[in-house]
Simulated assay, not measured.
Amino acid sequence: MGEVRKIAPVESARFVAHLPFTAADMSSALVFTRTLVRSLAFLDQLDGGEATVSFEDGQGNRERVFCDLLTETGRRCERRAGHPGSCLPRDGRHS
């Protein structure tokens, strides 16, 4: 009973957590998701740049939350998807 069993290391796999929430419209849903992702940015396991939002009954039609394109510096853009102008890398400097 006092035996400690070691768990064999497993290769990491990517998963998607589906977390339903309510919002007045798609714009509000995108703001909520941006806020949620940014509040969890300290988690290395989270790939916030890949966040998408959909209507509950239309999960096949997703809206990207962040641009996430590579900038000239090689970093990912942290601005909203479809933003005007140049991309802004995650270190806060304009490319």
Rank of each mutant, 00 (worst) to 15 (best):
58 G>W: 00
48 G>C: 08
75 R>V: 01
71 T>L: 00
11 E>M: 11
38 R>Y: 00
76 R>N: 12
19 L>D: 04
5 R>D: 03
52 T>W: 01
78 E>H: 05
94 H>E: 13
76 R>V: 03
81 A>N: 11
84 P>A: 13
17 A>R: 06
86 S>N: 11
14 R>W: 13
87 C>R: 10
93 R>E: 11
88 L>R: 14
50 E>F: 06
64 R>V: 01
79 R>V: 01
23 A>Y: 05
43 L>Y: 01
88 L>E: 10
73 T>Y: 08
45 Q>S: 11
83 H>P: 00
67 C>F: 03
5 R>Q: 10
27 S>H: 13
35 T>A: 15
34 R>K: 11
18 H>A: 11
10 V>F: 12
1 M>V: 04
89 P>M: 05
92 G>T: 06
15 F>E: 09
19 L>E: 13
13 A>Y: 07
37 V>M: 15
80 R>C: 02
84 P>L: 08
20 P>T: 03
25 D>Y: 09
87 C>S: 15
17 A>F: 09
38 R>L: 15
54 S>Y: 04
43 L>W: 10
68 D>Y: 03
76 R>Y: 10
8 A>I: 02
22 T>M: 03
52 T>Y: 05
42 F>E: 02
15 F>S: 10
64 R>N: 11
10 V>Y: 11
76 R>W: 04
72 E>F: 07
32 F>E: 07
65 V>H: 08
3 E>G: 00
27 S>A: 15
76 R>H: 14
70 L>S: 07
57 D>W: 02
49 G>A: 07
95 S>W: 02
44 D>H: 05
79 R>M: 14
28 S>L: 03
5 R>P: 00
69 L>F: 04
95 S>Y: 00
22 T>V: 06
27 S>L: 04
12 S>F: 10
35 T>R: 14
55 F>T: 05
26 M>L: 15
80 R>I: 08
48 G>L: 09
73 T>W: 03
71 T>V: 11
12 S>D: 09
39 S>H: 13
38 R>H: 06
8 A>K: 07
90 R>S: 12
85 G>R: 02
91 D>T: 10
78 E>M: 12
84 P>Y: 12
54 S>C: 14
92 G>F: 03
35 T>C: 07
16 V>W: 15
9 P>R: 10
36 L>H: 12
84 P>G: 09
66 F>Y: 12
66 F>S: 12
27 S>D: 13
10 V>P: 00
35 T>I: 01
95 S>T: 09
59 Q>S: 05
17 A>E: 05
46 L>W: 03
94 H>D: 10
42 F>S: 11
52 T>S: 13
59 Q>A: 09
12 S>R: 15
91 D>R: 08
46 L>S: 02
50 E>T: 00
12 S>M: 07
35 T>S: 12
22 T>E: 09
30 L>R: 06
60 G>P: 00
32 F>K: 10
72 E>L: 08
84 P>H: 10
38 R>Q: 08
13 A>L: 14
21 F>R: 07
51 A>W: 05
5 R>K: 08
31 V>Q: 13
63 E>N: 15
9 P>D: 01
29 A>E: 06
25 D>P: 13
44 D>Q: 07
54 S>W: 11
64 R>E: 13
49 G>I: 00
84 P>F: 09
